[in-house]
Design a protein around this nucleic acid. Structure first.
Lengths: 128, 128, 128, 128
DNA sequence: GTGGTCTAGACCACC
DNA sequence: GTGGTCTAGACCACT
């Protein structure tokens, strides 16, 4: 389920955050679905519960999950996510990547086709 | 020339790397142009030369600059850059960003138009 | 009647307390009016009776309600409330809020006008 | 300097946050002034550095302090604080307190005079 | 020396 | 059993 890389320079809790986000975004975790409890996941990954706690707390602050005391943590339905700020960040990120793609002379058409392919994939599985 | 943000939590040497890369990619620094020496830049930014050293070392490893002993450091012409690895990284990065854009329901067309606009801008100034 | 927010990190029993207090203060619940029994309210909100119990117990300790065995719980008439301690708490709270308002440079007049408006509203409906 | 109450139900890190905020708001700590390092304060209060860390991190997220790696933590100048959201919270808080003051029949004039007094105090010491 | 990350193990409030 | 808080002690990256 999760693959942690201890050699990587990025902190464990961020790796957990990233992978959880990926699972939510990819649709592997559905809206309002329960995610593993802090202790469960800690045991699964054989790391300290505090590290999971930190990851979950930040995921909650960023709006990807919500937690209910004595119940567990759950995936925020995507329509409830505060989108505007995030979209700005994503577009800035996109711009930076594309500018470098231009620099290394990847043709426009290749990039556009790639993006259309990604949209096509998702559109058929997760739209609606 | 450089704008360092001490309050930002990203390390100074990375901020320097990023800004140097931006200047190379944007064309502000031309191929084979000399960039400031470690000591010069350290003095300009009033920070420790070790910090600059680290930034330059990584830029060289990533192929953006090359250095000649007793001469200084210079911008690698873009045709000499080892592109394949970098392109892979960029495409992976692109995929992650686009998947999240899909998740927050930004329409395909908006993304594609944005990318075409970026290509158009650069095409007229730096292409060829 | 009551709106519980499970995602909120404040305990359920406090949410119930707060809302009950608000209803008493606003006049929605009159003096000596009967409030729902523990079991009734638990059923209405589909939560554990213990949680309601805890809320009622604290409301009683703070003097907002009183209970009669085998009869139920009732709203304390406002003249019977032990006011002095509570007023001290409120004034301390007020001081803290106002000091921060000063810090973020909200002008005195704006605060004063706001308070006068609140008094005017209540004065016409519930005073006397 | 700091007074922690171990018996209090509120977490230690929040007590630290509150007191630090009070000191910033009261002007006891000036803009860009260095506050004690994580370890220093931990030693002063004889509590664990992690607890201080948590308090500082949240204070930084809320904009009251900023930290620079390998340098320390510093007070954010008040003009740089993101005010609008905070003002809304404060006004809501104010409303709740005032409504209860009305309920326990504290006269409007007493409240208004109290607020004017607070503004007068601050105005003479910290304005400009 | 500073802030940041992590562990192992404990205790608490809530439901 | 769940999330949240706390301790004691360790290690790391950065400057």
């Amino acid at each position: 389920m999760f693959q942690l890389n201890l050699k990587d320079h990025s902190p464990l809790y961020q790796q957990i955050k990233e992978q959880m986000k990926t699972m939510i975004i990819s649709g592997a975790l559905k809206a309002d679905e329960k995610i593993p409890s802090v202790r469960e996941l800690a045991q699964m990954l054989t790391i300290n519960p505090n590290t999971i706690q930190k990851a979950y707390k930040e995921l909650e602050q960023e709006g990807f999950i919500y937690s209910i005391r004595a119940k567990g943590s759950f995936v925020t339905p995507r329509d409830n996510i505060l989108k505007e700020v995030r979209i700005n960040e994503l577009m800035t990120n996109l711009e930076k990547t594309v500018r470098e793609l231009i620099y290394v002379q990847v043709p426009c058409q290749q990039v556009v086709l790639y993006i259309k392919k990604l949209y096509a994939e998702e559109g058929s599985t997760a739209d609606d």
